[in-house]
Computed example of a mutant assay.
Amino acid sequence: MDKIAVLIPCYNEEKTIKKVIDDTKKALPEAIIYVYNNNSSDRTAEIARAAGAVVRNEYMQGKGNVIRRMFREIEAQCYIMVDGDDTYPMESAPEMVQKVLEHNADMVVGDRLSSTYFTENKRPFHNFGNSLVRSSINKLFDCDVRDIMTGYRAFSYEFVKTFPVLSKGFEIETEMTIHAVSNNMQIENVVIEYRDRPEGSESKLNTYADGFKVIRTISRLYRDYKPLGFFSAMAVVLAFLAVFFIIPVFFEYWETGEVRRFPTLIVCGFTMIAALQSFFNGLTLQNMAINNRRVFEMQLNGLHRKKMSLITKINDGSDID
């Protein structure tokens, strides 16, 4: 088990990867640096290996797939995840590591939005999207995470080994945040100085396509982690529609004594039944979510014992299978 593992997912970052590795060595000389090459068509892997990093490959395209592979293969007390595009300062890494190893943090967020992001980033829709996602998640999940989509984070062993990676692409950061918030894990924020990509380095993000994926991910995770809130909202909408369209039918019946719009009456009745079903489905799924939380807490306890056993063996100089 490594004490500190630096994880760098890469796709065509030959212009910046050497600097990121060199900066990491200066900031965290005791860390093991892993570069995961995701089908790069340039010299990313060759340059990273020459710079002293451990280079591995993930052949399924997408950042989510790379992170799944990283988290599955690497064992460490503290993980630092950083992009290979040289937009994040490695000088902040020691503080992030300290919060994991000495302050019991499960996830440390490198907060760009509280410093230079909005002045350095030249893509206005990215700025708007980051603000929208941050406010949406903080409101829906009642938390205070200051940068939801940052690619610069630190994790505990327990977080990495319990995080179910479901996303394939850049929406993975949103998924990480909601997993930590919903499972009551300790989250810390560290303000970092963001800098835009150097000239000649191109972003892999698609503002609109990836933005829609992030919104869809938020909706899906809200349904999974907060089913009562999700299905209650659906029930309210359905009930409102049923009442709105049935009121004229009742007024007409009150005045004439006749029901002249039976199709409307029938549809409104079924819509109200759907609203009630949605609400009770939310109650059922909420109970299942609570039970899943109990299982998760037991899993966390087992992982913590495993980690402490590994650390003890390392300190004693014993062999680890």
Rank of each mutant, 00 (worst) to 15 (best):
I290F: 08
R261Q: 13
V249E: 13
Y222G: 01
M272L: 15
M298L: 10
G269N: 11
F280R: 09
G302R: 13
H304V: 02
L265R: 08
P263I: 08
H304N: 10
N292Y: 14
R305N: 13
K204T: 08
I215Y: 07
Y253V: 09
V267A: 12
Q286F: 09
K204S: 10
F240K: 15
F296K: 00
F245M: 07
L221I: 04
F230Y: 15
I247Q: 10
F231K: 05
I266D: 01
E202W: 13
R223P: 02
R293V: 04
T271V: 15
F296I: 02
L205Y: 09
K213T: 02
E255N: 12
S203T: 14
R216Q: 07
M298T: 07
F250C: 09
L283R: 15
L276R: 13
S219C: 02
A242I: 08
R223T: 01
I290R: 14
L228P: 01
Q277K: 10
V295M: 00
R260S: 14
Q299G: 07
Y225E: 02
E297C: 04
T284A: 02
L300E: 02
I266Y: 14
F251V: 14
R220I: 01
A235F: 09
M298W: 05
I290Y: 10
F251E: 03
R216P: 00
